[in-house]
Simulated scan of single mutants.
Amino acid sequence: MLWIKTFHIVLIASWFAGLFYLPRIFVNLAMETEPAAQRRLLTMARKLYRFMTFIAVPALACGLWLWLAVGIGRGQGWMHAKLGVVVLLVIYHAYCGHLLAVFERGENRRSDKWYRFFNELPVLGLLAAVALVVLKPF
């Protein structure tokens, strides 16, 4: 079980690295006017999104294993809240994929300021998830 916890933590940290960085690339894409730089940023964003998705799957699988097979948090309110946070983060991840497709089609209409705000949302998700696991408030 400790190995699964270890993998879960490392994989989640890696997934969050992408959740923090991809929207920052979107900030730069929203500001960039040079076509060569836009292509380079899009390539970076595509590769990062693929990596994030590749990492998210085993990260979530390890979490599910700990919950369903090991029983960590089973029937406890904090775990239900944490699962809600995880669902929101998965939706955020998928929405990043949508935004990437919008940039690839050249159809972005949002400002760099909007992406700067959007970039901060996973911080709130991470804070909520960690607080729920550590504090177990209910």
Rank of each mutant, 00 (worst) to 15 (best):
M1Q: 06
L2M: 14
L2I: 14
I4S: 10
T6K: 04
F7C: 07
F7R: 05
H8G: 07
I9C: 06
V10D: 03
I12R: 08
I12S: 09
A13W: 12
A13M: 14
A13V: 14
S14W: 07
W15F: 13
W15R: 01
W15D: 01
F16I: 07
A17Q: 06
G18W: 10
L19P: 02
L19T: 10
F20N: 08
Y21T: 07
P23Y: 11
R24G: 05
I25C: 08
F26M: 12
N28R: 15
M31R: 15
E32F: 07
P35H: 09
R40Q: 14
L41R: 09
L42I: 08
T43R: 14
A45H: 10
A45I: 02
A45W: 13
R46Y: 12
R46G: 09
K47H: 15
L48Y: 15
Y49K: 08
Y49R: 10
F51H: 11
F51W: 14
F51L: 15
M52D: 08
T53V: 13
I55P: 11
A56K: 02
P58N: 11
A59D: 08
C62I: 05
C62S: 15
G63D: 10
L64E: 13
L64C: 07
A69C: 03
G71A: 03
G71F: 05
I72A: 01
G73F: 09
G73K: 07
R74M: 00
G75T: 09
W78P: 09
H80K: 09
H80L: 13
A81P: 02
K82M: 08
K82N: 08
K82S: 06
K82C: 07
L83H: 10
V85F: 10
V85L: 10
V86D: 02
V86Y: 03
V87M: 05
V87H: 01
L89E: 12
I91W: 05
Y92Q: 04
A94N: 04
Y95T: 04
Y95W: 06
C96D: 00
G97L: 01
H98T: 04
L100V: 01
L100P: 04
A101P: 00
V102S: 03
F103W: 02
R105K: 14
R105G: 00
G106H: 02
G106F: 02
E107T: 02
E107I: 01
N108Y: 04
R109C: 03
R110E: 04
D112L: 03
K113F: 04
K113H: 10
W114A: 03
Y115F: 15
Y115P: 03
R116Y: 05
F117V: 14
F117E: 01
N119F: 00
E120V: 01
E120R: 09
L121P: 00
P122T: 06
L124T: 02
L126T: 08
L126P: 06
L127I: 14
A128P: 07
V130Q: 11
A131H: 06
K136I: 03
P137R: 06
P137D: 06
F138H: 11
